[in-house]
Design a protein around this nucleic acid. Structure first.
Lengths: 206, 206, 206, 206
DNA sequence: TATGAATGAGGGTTCATTCAT
DNA sequence: AATGAATGAACCCTCATTCAT
């Protein structure tokens, strides 16, 4: 009986996610206001009415998207590793990984950022649940590097945001330029290295 | 006769801009798909029908927004000054100015980036008319600094995008965090200084 | 002074007619409901506002069209000649003339008939001012021919309507078939002769 | 399963017809351009949106009207009987039947003729699918009567159109005159007899 | 008097949501 | 639970009409 219920529960959860993923994909592509429930239904491979068995209405899809933080659930775990190592090599790897994620999801990031910042409630929730956990980990890392003398004395809040912002901004720029960009995804490693060089050594000659 | 026509022409231009500004404001706030022509009309202080005397349809408003490059027309002129001076003080000023612009217009930037990257034609036009002119100026500046030994040898294309991306990303992060951000617009000067320090000297201790 | 006024009056009349002719042409082509005042204005070669200096509104154009009986003003005069002659040759000529008129104006006739029969007031006015004068002349002619023994004893009301109806029906059929019709306008004379043969001798063999 | 689908199919067909009938009625009364989808919906007893589940747009309703030939589907079957009998009595009956149909549907005929002749594609389709089948049957009938000596030698194409045109024209005239017409529907039999007399014997005395 | 830009009521159409199956 | 036909509110857009020039 409990097993029965659990199974049902699980199926329900899967269906919810299936629909939510479809919604994220559709919304990111067409924009929330220009997406139709029929679009989402088709993308999810279900009937229109079915969506309403799992979500109250269209807006509920959007809100659930943010609350489920589909795209960032693995962000934190990655950043957690940062506290362990922090060699230049690892920095390269980390930047590369984040750049790749940004390049691949720029459209979704753009969509989510736009929708989130428009709605005060969603914004606050997102900032508290996603942005700050990430930034504070980054700040901690920087602070510890400063303390250990690896980094010079800097404002870790500003620098953390600068570094995160650089990744975000580059991803969006790349999304705008697309194929015409001189930066190719094939050379992500080189780009990441150049960036880590910028972060660590700056531009100053000698 | 010609004076008469010229006057009419001018009024028409003014009206077009008045409507376009309203559209940018409304679209940026609510998103294109969720904005109504009534919203735009009200914001522009004209009747709904009047808009259609100046723009074919709603989409034409969006396209015209991008083509008129309303928000970036003064970008280039500012960057042009960069070629003249390039002291650390000037870099501070430039970054501060760009950050302020980004902070003030993050919502609009977000909206435009999202809409532009969705449409292949608009994207290409925007990249060619706005993004590249800006980036190439920045690249030139970096290249000349490298040549004169002020900067060490770096890939100017990557670094130019990193710097521009940093500004964009910071503005968007700031828009997300808003009042809760530890970065206050009141201290833009300090932030800019910290950033220019990052760009020039990097993070490395001593 | 009176001459002055007369001139003005005449110009006004001309302008009214110019607009009315344009309206008839446009309405006949697109249908009343699908025609716009801009269409009419363009066809008349005047500004939109100008129309309103001569007609109260769009509907007024339609009503005036019917009241002016633009297309039938010369009908009566033609029929009047019928009382004078009535040879077989003249019947040929009359039918030919009416057929030609019908063929040329089928579109307009169709439009007017449709609009007129829809509106009780217009319908009554049209019937009294156009249809009956025409039909009664035709009836009189038939009656006199019966009296003089040229025609056998027939119900002149039915026959008058049959003859008028034949012309109308043929014109409309021709308009439907257009180029694909085996009846060519080039052979109107032959067609008219065949019809007069039908009317006078019927189809019965020998 | 197949039964299920068949049922659904049938209901869909019924709904399509229900809407189409309503559209024909509304359009015939108010004219296409002045009819609203709300009018049609109300006449059909469905919601406005429902119409769009069955027809692409308003124009599709009009086109479907013509293609479905709602009003003339039974025309051909009637004319087919003509080839069997052709006594004077039968001619009376046939004319009476056609006149009655014309009198009853004059408004619709007028509407359809006007709309059809306006659109080249619809016109050609209508001519080929409705007008010509009818006319050619009539022509055949006349030709055979000529051959058998019942009719004298006439051009069957012209006479066929004359006869059909007479019916159409009379119906439209009747619609115009309405109650004021001296021709009453109550005496259709007499009218038909007079017309058949005209067709067969003509007007000539003795 | 002639004009056409401004206007908003109204109409075609879409689409989120409901509900009977 | 899944579905999609039915619905009407809401939106884009047109166009008759007005009015300042």
């Amino acid at each position: 009986m409990t097993a029965r219920q659990a199974r049902k529960e699980r199926i329900t959860q899967e269906r919810r996610e299936q629909i939510l993923k479809a919604a994220l994909s559709v919304f990111s592509t067409r924009g929330y206001g220009e997406s139709t429930m029929a679009d989402v239904a088709e993308a999810a491979g279900v009937g229109v009415g079915t969506i309403y068995n799992y979500y109250k209405d269209k807006r509920d899809l959007l809100i659930s998207l943010v609350q489920n933080l589909l795209i960032s659930e693995n962000l934190v775990s990655i950043l957690d590793k940062m506290t362990l190592y922090s060699s230049r090599d690892f920095m390269d790897l980390l930047i590369e990984e984040r750049l790749r994620f940004g390049f691949d999801n720029a459209q979704t990031i753009l969509f989510l950022m736009f929708e989130i910042q428009r709605d005060a409630k969603m914004r606050r929730k997102y900032v508290q649940n996603v942005v700050w956990p990430l930034l504070s980990r980054l700040e901690n890392l920087i602070r510890s590097q400063v303390k250990s003398g690896v980094f010079r004395k800097v404002d870790e809040k500003i620098i953390a945001r600068a570094m995160a912002g650089t990744i975000i901004g580059n991803a969006l720029l790349f999304r705008l330029e697309q194929r015409e960009s001189p930066l190719k995804k094939a050379h992500l490693k080189d780009i990441a290295h150049e960036l880590s060089g910028l972060f660590i050594d700056g531009l100053a000659g000698k």
